[in-house]
Amino acid sequence: MSTTPLSPAQPIQREAFDPLADPRLYEGVLSRRVLAFCVDFGVVFTLTAIASVVIFFLGVVTLGLAWLLYGGVFPAMAILYSGATLGGDKAATWGMRLTGLTARMTDGAKPGFLIAAAHVVFLYVSFTLLTPFVLLVGLFTRRKQLLHDLVLSTVLVDRGRLEGRSY
C-alpha cells in the first residue's frame, strides 16, 4: 500500500484542544488573561527595578560601563521571567496561576523555554503595534487565541477543567 498526501499511512491526529469537543476549557479565558497580564507586568516591573539597582552599583564599579545595560533590562527580565515560568513544569506564569490558566501547544504539549520566550516577545510586539486592539482577535477565534498565540500554535486553557475538576 503506497502513501500519498491524500491517503497518509497514519490517521490524521486531531488537535488536543478542540473547542468543539470541550468548549468549557475556554470559558472566561480572555478576561482572566487581562488580569494575568497585569499581575505579570507588575512582577516583571519589580524584577526590572531590582535589576536596575544592581546595574547602578555595577555601573559605579565599572565607571559607568554597566549602565549601558539599562536599555535592555526590561526585555531581558520579561524574557527570563516568562521563559522560566511559562516554559516550566506548570506551564503558567504567576499571573496565569493566580487566575487559573495554563498554556499548552495545540497538540497538548507544554511549551518549552524558547516557545515561552518567543511568546512574551510576540506579545509585547503585538501590544506595541496594535495597542489593546490585539484583544479583539480573541473574540473571533474559536480557542480565544490572540495573534501571538496563533503564530506560535499555543492556547491558554482553564487549568481546573484541564485537570478534570468541574465547577
Rank of each mutant, 00 (worst) to 15 (best):
A16M: 06
A16W: 03
F17D: 00
F17Q: 01
L20V: 05
D22Q: 11
D22L: 08
P23Y: 03
R24C: 00
R24I: 02
R24G: 00
E27L: 10
L30H: 01
V34F: 15
L35C: 01
L35A: 14
A36M: 07
F37T: 01
F37S: 06
V39N: 10
D40E: 12
V43S: 07
V44R: 05
F45D: 07
T46H: 08
T46G: 13
A49W: 04
I50N: 01
S52K: 07
V53I: 13
V53E: 09
V54G: 13
F56Y: 15
F56P: 02
F57T: 02
F57V: 06
F57Q: 09
G59H: 11
G59T: 04
V61N: 00
V61R: 11
T62W: 03
L63G: 03
L68Q: 12
L68E: 04
G72Q: 06
G72C: 07
P75L: 12
A76G: 14
A76S: 14
M77E: 05
M77F: 01
A78E: 06
L80P: 09
S82R: 07
S82M: 12
G83D: 11
G83F: 10
A84G: 09
A84S: 15
A84R: 14
A84T: 12
T85P: 06
G88D: 12
K90V: 08
A91W: 04
A92S: 13
T93R: 08
G95F: 03
G95N: 06
M96K: 15
R97K: 15
L98V: 06
T99M: 15
T102V: 09
